[in-house]
Nucleic acid binder design. Structure first.
Lengths: 206, 206
DNA sequence: GTCTATATTTCGATAGAC
DNA sequence: GTCTATCGAAATATAGAC
């Protein structure tokens, strides 16, 4: 199927997982509102009615995708950001891992990052809370680097947001089979992020 | 109404412009597929049927918004990128202007940047062509800077795409009344872009 | 050009057999 | 737990009066 299988491997029963994977693909291709429950059920090899045995509404499918995806994204970012090493090393590792996830799991990531607004009010609020945590984690690394004198950043909040923008947007344009591997993009972006905070390798000025 | 009025001021007759402005607002808030023609007509103070006097389909509204918006965005970027000065000056001016437009006209920009996939096949192809031009313009500035020795960039294509990601993503998160003005974000991002190409002011290494 | 009224289609979700 | 069949609502787009 797709690279989304890895994210939702723990979902049971089997039919519920197949429906979730079908929904990820469909939402990523067409968007939540343009996707029909018939389409989702069809991708899972089931009748339209079968969807409602495992999920109460179409929105609940989006919520589960969004929740599990955000949990994974936060975990990946925090594992790198709160690991060992200098602020520069942690920033580099965090951006590389975060970007790599957005490229490798671009189908899931696209839904996670760009279909938020289709969530119901309460689900939306919950997800927004997780996204705030994401910003805080990255801002913490930048603050550490500034305190250490490793980074030169005037607008901490704005720069952290910019680095996140860079990472997240990978999900929008990445296509499997393109000229760069997820690993290569991760390495490129880690270098760009270091430069953005004033810690990157610069030219030998001329 | 909104900041979109400026973009579409030249559209006549009056009813056609009001419908376009209503569509921009609705598409930006809910997305193309979640927006009803009744909603658009309602925002324009008209009946649902009146829409079809001025536009053949809902998709044609999106196409007009997308076309005019992309034309404006390309013009803003190219005016700065192909102006005078060093590569660093042109990059700085281009990013500042491009970001500022995405912030000031975030409603239009959100539709322009994130509702592309709802376009019909032929319209989509036309818009993709304009977006390729956008990438080429920015890549040209970066190439100039590398040739001059002003910039240090290994992956020209990847770095140009990253700078564009940064600019475009402003339309996703910007809210009027937030802590920063469009001008301030433009200045911040111009500095970040310079750093990304190895031309930014860096710390006095310790 | 704009309205009221509606044709036609399609969608999300449910009922009931198995 | 899955299916066939379908309900009721809502959508895009059109018809015809004014």
């Amino acid at each position: 199927m797709g690279e989304a299988a890895e994210e939702f491997g723990g979902v049971t029963p089997d039919a519920a997982r197949r429906l979730l994977l079908g929904a990820v693909e469909a939402f990523a291709e067409r968007g939540f509102h343009a996707t029909t429950t018939r389409d989702i059920a069809g991708r899972a090899g089931m009748s339209p009615a079968a969807l409602y045995i495992h999920y109460r509404t179409k929105e609940e499918l989006l919520y589960q995708i969004s929740r599990v995806g955000h949990e994974r994204a936060v975990r990946i970012l925090s594992a790198a950001a709160e690991g060992g090493g200098s602020a520069a090393e942690r920033l580099s590792t965090a951006v590389r891992a975060f970007v790599r996830w957005h490229a490798e799991h671009h189908t899931t990531a696209r839904v996670v990052q760009y279909e938020l607004t289709a969530l119901g009010t309460e689900h939306y609020a919950e997800i927004v809370g997780m996204r705030r945590r994401t910003e805080e984690i990255l801002r913490g690394v930048l603050a550490d680097g500034v305190a250490d004198g490793e980074f030169t950043v005037e607008d901490l909040r704005g720069t952290a947001l910019a680095v996140l923008s860079l990472c997240v947007d990978v999900a929008r344009w990445f296509r499997t089979g393109g000229p760069r591997t997820p690993e290569e993009i991760g390495t490129l972006y880690a270098g760009l992020a270091l430069r953005m905070v004033g810690a990157g390798p610069t030219r030998s000025s001329g």
